[in-house]
Amino acid sequence: MDSRLDRTRSKLADFLRRRRESLSPLDVGLPVGKRRRTPGLRREEVAALAGVGITWYTWLEQGRAITVSAAFLDNVSRVLKLDEIERRHLFLLAHQRPPAVAGQAWCELPPLVRLLLDDLTRRPSYVLNLRWDVIGWNAAAEQLFGFEPRDPGERNMLWMLFADDRLNSRIVEWAVQAPQVLASFRRDFARAPEDESMVALVGALEEVSPSFKVLWNQHDVHGRCEGRRSFMIEGRGAVVFDHSSFIVDEETHLRLVFYAEAESEQPLPMRGESAEASRV
C-alpha cells in the first residue's frame, strides 16, 4: 500500500475523531444522558445526524481505504460544525482535492484590484464578477466600452453585448463572436444556476434579444473567452485587439479582462491625445 496514502488516512482518522470528541451532545441538540463514558459524540450519533450509514462513517473514521461522495463529506462537516478551513482540510484528506466553491454572483471590488486597474493605464481593462457585471474599469476601457454613461443596472457585459447597440454594433463579425461569448458565460452560469440575479439576467435577455434566446438554448459551453476582437473606432476604422482574462480573486470569482491592440501594438490613444503623440 502507498505509504503516503497510509499517512493521509491516518491523519483523516485522527482529525475526525478529535472533532467528534470536541462536541457535546448539547452542541447538536441531543440529551446528555447518564451513561457516557467517553467525551464528545458517539460515532452512531454523527452518522444518524449526517444521514449516512454507521458502518461507512466508522470505516471513514478508522482510515480505511473507502471512497465517499462530496455530499457525504458535506453532511459530516455540517454535523461536526466544521468551518470553511476545516471543511477544506477534510476534503483534502478524503479526496486529495478541495471542495467545489459555490458560485458567488456579487462582490465588491477589492482595493488592490482597483490599484491594478489604475496601473494598467494604456490598455483597456475591466473586472467582471461571476454574473459578468462590470464592477471596475480603467480609463482606456472607458474610452473603448463607455461604461460610465450606462445605467448601473445595465453595466453588465452580457447585457451590453446582446441588448445594447452602442456596443454590439461596433464589434466586427458580431455574428461570429456572439456564440463564443455566450458559451463562455454558460460555464460561469453553471457555478451558480440557482442564483436569483443570474437567472433574472438570463430571463431578461431572452425577452429583449432573440439572438440571445436562440444561442442560449443551444447549450454550448466553452472555456474562457479569449482571442481576437475588432472594434469600429471613430476616426480609425476597424481596430484589432487581442484579449484574454485572468483570475484575480478565485474565491469571489473576479476576473480581469485585458485588451491589447494587436496590429500596430500601440496603445489606444487617451481621450484628447493625438495618434502622433501616442507614439512618442
Results as ranks from 00 to 15, higher is better:
1 M>L: 09
10 S>T: 04
15 F>R: 04
16 L>K: 00
16 L>A: 09
21 E>K: 09
23 L>F: 03
24 S>R: 07
24 S>P: 11
26 L>Y: 04
29 G>Q: 05
34 K>W: 12
35 R>M: 13
36 R>G: 08
38 T>Y: 12
40 G>Y: 07
43 R>Q: 10
45 E>N: 11
54 I>G: 07
64 R>D: 12
68 V>Q: 01
72 F>K: 01
78 R>K: 05
79 V>H: 07
80 L>P: 00
81 K>D: 07
85 I>E: 15
91 F>D: 03
101 V>P: 15
111 P>I: 08
117 L>T: 05
118 D>E: 07
118 D>R: 10
121 T>H: 11
123 R>S: 14
124 P>N: 05
127 V>D: 02
127 V>I: 09
138 N>A: 07
139 A>M: 11
140 A>V: 03
140 A>Q: 09
144 L>H: 02
147 F>Y: 14
160 M>A: 14
160 M>V: 06
161 L>R: 00
162 F>V: 11
167 L>A: 02
171 I>H: 00
176 V>H: 06
177 Q>I: 06
180 Q>A: 06
183 A>E: 06
183 A>K: 11
189 F>Q: 10
195 D>P: 03
196 E>R: 07
197 S>H: 11
197 S>K: 10
199 V>G: 10
200 A>S: 15
202 V>D: 09
202 V>I: 11
206 E>Y: 00
209 S>R: 00
210 P>H: 02
210 P>E: 11
212 F>L: 05
213 K>R: 13
214 V>R: 13
218 Q>A: 08
220 D>I: 01
222 H>N: 15
223 G>M: 04
226 E>I: 05
226 E>Y: 10
230 S>K: 09
231 F>C: 01
233 I>H: 13
233 I>A: 03
234 E>D: 14
237 G>Y: 01
247 I>V: 15
247 I>H: 14
248 V>N: 12
250 E>S: 12
250 E>Q: 04
252 T>R: 11
258 F>W: 06
263 E>P: 02
266 Q>G: 13
271 R>Y: 03
274 S>T: 15
280 V>A: 03
